[in-house]
Amino acid sequence: MLPLKDYRRYGRQMILEGFGLPGQVKLKEASVVVVGAGGLGCPALQYLAASGIGRIGVIDHDVVELSNLHRQILHTETTIGMPKALSAAKAISVINPQSKVEAVVQALSPTNATELLAPYDVILDCTDNAPTRYLLSDVAVALRKPLVSGAAQRFEGQLCIYNYGENGPCYRCLFPKPPAQETVGTCEETGILGAVTGIIGNLQALETIKIIAGLKDQAPSLLLFNALQTPPFRSIKLRNKKPACAACGSGAKTRGMIDNTDYVQFCGGPPANWVERGL
């Protein structure tokens, strides 16, 4: 099933009870796409590659900037100016030359998202803005794939698996209406402690590995993290999917909705810096 070298490389996880050779083979045969190669995407990609996932996609249209480097640990001073997707792909190819890495330097949009995400088993939301989060959720519903979603700002992080299992909710089940734009900060505006994105991105990799290996239960939950609080982690029991949900509900026409939604307008229109960034 596996080349001899893989037994040596992955031996420490293959002797895990409940994982074993079948778990490693599942990782090798699996494909995962990480949308966003920033603070969350970098650590997620790193541990996904190291674990032996067979095929990994990286989608990001941004380029590396000096202000990213305090948290986006796959990029370096020498890759400043390079598209993040390429910089990250290069870095994880060094971590694991056996993983097939596919870099996409494009902004995700309603017209290309379905096609770009369809070839993968699991989707990771490592993005940094509300419109793309709604778009990713809708596409994950349309493609019937689990969406491992992370977010981080200031000293806080949030982790949730959407559209997973029989009854798992989608992003719209939880947040049918987008927040008003003035309530939404970005890492540029509100700041972010690097290690916080590391912890959430790492947890996204772990949850993805659990899903692929069949170790993940299906009870919908949300993990909250606050680096300054005691206790720092809080696990929340979430609602099931909602029959009336516009995206995943019983009568929903998700694909049509994706084609006809202007996600930026839906989320209150572009703030100045989104326009610059081509969203």
């Binding site: 966003g36 920033g38 603070g39 969350l40 995407g41 490592c126 993005t127 940094d128 803005n129 509300a130 989060r133 992370g150 977010a151 981080a152 700002q153 806080e156 992080g157 949030q158 939880l174 947040f175 927040p179 309530t183 939404v184 900060g185 970005t186 890492c187 509100t190 972010i192 994105t197 909250l224 809080r234 929340i236």
Partner: peptide
């Protein structure tokens, strides 16, 4: 009771 605003950053 916890009131939490959803985060979008990454």
């Amino acid at each position: 009771l916890v009131f939490i605003s959803t985060l979008h950053g990454g």
